[in-house]
Design a protein around this nucleic acid. Structure first.
Lengths: 236, 236
DNA sequence: CTCTTTTTAATTGTATATGAATTACCGGCA
DNA sequence: TGCCGGTAATTCATATACAATTAAAAAGAG
């Protein structure tokens, strides 16, 4: 999935001492909007969340820069951002490595997510319109479909997308930013404990999404609270 | 308060085309640990939160770099981090400016803080020990003292410190990271609405902190929940 | 053979250069 | 007078270069 990603040629900057064999103008040829930092961020994030980069593995700036064919600068910015999202740990003056996630941390993420998603649901249930319901139902349906096709990675992406879309439509941007960050850590948790997840449990979770949409349509706030709790902290 | 802060001399990097009038070895002379990025981060943050940088004011990298006598690179990293903390908004390819905070956003911050601090309190009330109570009581006392001395800036810092210390001692690191971020935005809110805050209200808030400590000592979870709610969203 | 110390190599932190993109300014035209 | 378009000036994005530090490897002592 994340294998052939080349990012555009190097550009800008100072001419190297070496006779610069590739005087490609660079950005002038690029029609995309995203900066190299953003592309590098997405790329490294995918490598971590898809398990290519193992737990605790070192991530040297220079090596990654060579692989993506860019200079160290955008890689640096990407790593700093990934640190903010809890996917990378940077030891100053030393190196950056893939964050490992303890069981305790996973629990803490779940507890925070629970409270915040409950807040989001309490908010959206008061303002929900048909467009919200349709959008959420569509994501939930797609997730089930992808799961039955057997593409687990896409299923998980759509699982995340459902929760984030719900929060986005709650209208609380502060909340959305926080949960977007937490989602990264949550995805990391999933990757690290992929074997321990029986298929039937995954399908149950996806079905619960669809139940949420129904309850949202009915304005059943109490039922939603219980459902969210059971969904995020199944142990109870 | 934040006025005379010079940060060390420039160092490293390539010799300029100009004959480099200051060949000071640089980092060899520095005995401090923090990177220039971190110092720049703290510096700019203080300038924003103390109101020196106005709402929406542009923050050009080069100019700040000259003022702090460092190159643009650490300033860049500092601005990126400040953006993560919601104090700065970066328009790509254009400029960075001080974030403005709308009333709506302030409300959203309060709602999120409420839920998360309630979570923290529910957690700490089960594990609280004497050391926790002492530390919190000390901060609360200091805050009152500073307020009576009339130093509002320090009072607000200690207000923040109380809430953060409470969360830190709840043992949930994920939660702490989130609330530390939110605290930055919250401080920004305070700065922007400093006039609208009568002195008696500030003192009431500080006294409530002390009441929390008492309730913590008594394990009065219900009372704490009500108190937290009234504290963070006084309107109710 | 293991532990300590010294040397070497790898890697980050920071400075600066350069091109591209955006914004601001100014003069011509309706 | 007011608007539009072109040019100049800022400012960012990204590149490379050098310095300083840490991690790794090698050498030496017990």
């Amino acid at each position: 999935m994340a294998k052939t990603m080349t990012i555009k040629r190097r550009s800008g900057g100072k001419k190297a001492s070496a006779p610069a064999p590739l005087p490609i103008p660079g950005s002038a040829l690029r029609f995309d909007q995203r900066s190299l930092s953003e592309e590098a961020y997405e790329h490294i994030k995918r490598l971590i969340l898809s398990g290519v980069f193992k737990d605790g593995e070192k991530i040297p700036e220079e090596k990654i820069a060579q692989i993506l064919n860019v200079s160290r600068t955008p890689i640096r910015e990407a790593l700093r951002q990934l640190e903010q999202y809890g996917l990378v740990v940077i030891k100053p003056r030393s190196y950056a490595k893939v964050a490992s996630v303890t069981f305790r941390e996973a629990e803490q993420v779940a507890h925070v997510r629970l409270e915040l998603e409950k807040l989001a649901v309490r908010s959206i249930v008061k303002t929900v319109v048909k467009d919200d319901l349709d959008a959420l139902a569509r994501i939930a349906r797609q997730a089930v479909a992808k799961f039955r096709e057997g593409s687990l990675a896409e299923t998980f992406m759509l699982d995340s997308a459902f929760h984030l879309e719900l929060v986005r439509r709650s209208g609380n941007n502060i909340l959305y930013d926080i949960l977007e960050r937490l989602d990264a850590k949550n995805q990391l948790v999933r990757v690290r404990s992929v074997a321990a997840r029986p298929a039937e449990m995954v399908e149950r979770l996806l079905r619960e999404h669809q139940a949420w949409v129904t309850m949202l349509a009915n304005g059943d706030e109490e039922g939603l609270m219980r459902a969210v709790e059971a969904h995020i902290i199944p142990g109870n």
